[in-house]
Design a protein around this nucleic acid. Structure first.
Lengths: 204, 204
DNA sequence: CAGGTTTTTTACCAATTGGTAAAGTTACGA
DNA sequence: TCGTAACTTTACCAATTGGTAAAAAACCTG
């Protein structure tokens, strides 16, 4: 048995959304400890006790944010179609991950911050949500490899390498900006490179 | 003209080393804001004001740590030998990066924490130290490619992908442990995978 | 529009935190 | 071994921070 949990009012829905948007901006930029309730409050035009009215603690905001975004974040992996063309499915996944890195760098950095520090507030969710999906999709990739449609390799490490390369462009943007400055076609170049890289790697 | 800057005493050398070791452990695990001077002090058996005796502020500890470690961290890139065999040089670099990820995950996560948050205390050092080295080594790689010794691709993105994949094993270890649990040969498998991946990618 | 409920605001608090002042102790060269 | 400089410790502080209490305001429903 949990809470009575009445349906949330319109105001509740709106304000929780405002809070999460401000929290995403700040947590992704400064990490959990580097963000204060006052910052979140002023970023969304509220007062600190008002945040606590909607979330019982700063940690509750962070956890809700992580868990809410994780589902969307993983949806492209979910979308691997076992009946599609293996190479096209993998490249579509990789392209989508690059696009998400470009469009949603805050989400990427939010997770990066959390996981680099040992995922203290997300481990249960990783076990419960990510692990089963990961195992299942590794299975699909493995099937494709054994059918000779993709080069044979360890599917888990393959997925790690896709995550690593694609999310690197969001997570390490500060460094990349220094090393490839003033390149307004950087994103395009990155996307071309990554697609060609994995096309070559995955060719049987 | 800067400080008089007398040669540091034996005690100074020892104690700064103790402080940096404790700071590395804590900053890499909890980030800059997530680490307190009291934690650092008790981790190295000192008292808080003693830290301030050796470093003028918490930030000074962090900056010194980052700048000190960066040189070692980059040394493998520095070691690319323009006269060596291109494929062997690249694979040696990649192997060394994997080894460092395994042996020095704290250093990797220290930098990851800093860069994910926009490198607020490291940007000048990136400009001054990393950028010139990076450009130079990109040049070497480019030469190798144009000599037909390596597959042709954007050298900067190639190096990014090497960093991404190798450091991922240190930075995202919390996630990898969940997804490939109980695998005491994980590191070996990762090293094999990554070497084969880049061997295939780099073959002309 | 009355009355209760939800939401917002003001005032506040205790704990933590980065850092200081200054007294006390140790190390070391003359 | 003595004096001074280097180092350590204790006591302290002001600012920040996560969070609370409770009054005030806004909102909704019969």
């Amino acid at each position: 048995m949990t809470e009575p949990a009445r349906k949330p009012s319109r105001i509740q829905v709106e304000n929780r959304k405002r809070i999460l948007e401000a929290a995403l901006e700040l947590f992704s930029k400064h990490g959990f400890r580097g963000t204060t309730l006052d910052q979140i409050a002023s970023a969304c035009g509220m007062h600190k006790p008002n945040l606590i009215y909607y979330y019982e603690s700063k940690e509750a905001i962070h956890v809700d944010l992580l868990n809410t975004l994780m589902t969307e974040w993983l949806s492209p992996l979910n979308a691997l179609d076992p009946d599609g063309d293996p190479m096209e499915e993998m490249l579509r996944y990789i392209r989508r991950k690059m696009e998400m890195s470009r469009l949603y760098p805050r989400e990427s950095r939010l997770f990066a911050n959390e996981i680099v520090q040992g995922a203290p507030r997300m481990l249960p969710h990783l076990e419960a949500t990510l692990k089963p999906l990961f195992d299942q999709q590794c299975g699909i990739v493995n099937t494709w490899m054994h059918a000779g449609k993709l080069a044979t390799m360890h599917p888990a490490h393959l997925i790690f390498s896709i995550w690593a390369v694609t999310q690197h462009y969001a997570d390490f943007d500060a460094q990349i900006s220094v090393l490839l400055p003033g390149d307004d076609k950087r994103a395009r170049g990155a996307e071309q490179f990554v697609e060609e890289m994995f096309r070559k790697l995955l060719s049987p």
